[in-house]
Amino acid sequence: MTEADLADARLGQRFGRLDLSSRLALLAVAALKINFDEFARDRIGICLAASAGSLTTDVNFWQGRNGIGGPSPTLFAYTLPSAAVGEIAIHFKLTGPNLCFVGAEKIIVPEAMDLIRRGEADGCVCVFCDVISAELAEIISLPPIATARACFLQRVRD
């Protein structure tokens, strides 16, 4: 999912208030069209990696520090890479185990498989968020990008 996909997206009343990473992540999971009703919600985990953590939102939050009333309390909640995990859990009512990494995508699937193999979950939503705003790109010397992708792993049913 990219920013272009967000234009027509409607995933509940709160969707527009989420930060960019959370919106992209939510959209990527929704695009999987998983029927979570087929699973026990407490047996579905979420495993997410964010390439640059929440730094894009951090920059936005801190830019508002001198505004009237100070920085935004709403935005502060998104200055955690795991905010997207929380939004996915809330939207799809998934109460299973959570993992959230900062760094490359390759870590997600092996860790999700491990959650399932160890019996901690029967399925796991895997999400990668790669969000670097133009402002952040200048600071960390990486190119701007805004994408998220997701897959779903589940235990093989007998």
Binding site: A83, G86, I90, T95, N98
Partner: peptide
């Protein structure tokens, strides 16, 4: 053990 409330941010 790990879980999510799936309730509020």
């Amino acid at each position: 053990g790990s879980s999510n409330d799936a309730n509020h941010l």
